[in-house]
Amino acid sequence: MTSVEAEAIAIRAPRLRIERRAVAWWMLRALSRWGPVLAALVVSYAVWEPARVWLVAPIVAASAVLAARLLVEPWWRYRVHRWEITERATYASSGWLVQEWRVAPTSRIQTVDAVRGPFEQLLGLSTLRVTTASSYGAVSIRGLDRRTAEEAAKRLAMVAELAEGDAT
């Protein structure tokens, strides 16, 4: 996949790919989120007899979601997620069913964070989060190697410091 959407969108994909370990991270995340939901439904199906007839549809739906998130989503996301940081902007693509690319100008950057959740720590991964003055304008780059993310954060913070104005 060389561009987000070959001819229709005339923008090239960001240059860099994310770590392959991110696939494992997405699998762990899917298990931790949808596993308990399915388990709770199955347990109530087994225990609570009068409600069985109402629980068939939710159980089927939850199993389908879990299967998709566990087996399809991580690999799909690995193909889509890409990133690139230049002097003037941060550019990243993400998503699977809903794909998105976003560009945030360096001159509007307010904070740069490297965030590491419990599963990410386990896998030595890190999420780079670049926020602008807009509460929806943050660019999150997931599945970076810990050191790569820290270096990128440091470099961005340095470049952003040079920009003038109150960045709104």
């Binding site: 809903v98 998105e100 976003r102 960045a167």
Partner: peptide, 20 residues
């Protein structure tokens, strides 16, 4: 000049229909 971040999003259905 007030736009800080720009994003273009496409769901599967949107991709099939040629929309963003």
């Amino acid at each position: 000049d007030a736009v800080s971040t720009i994003a273009v999003r496409q769901s599967i259905l949107q991709r099939r229909l040629g929309l963003s």
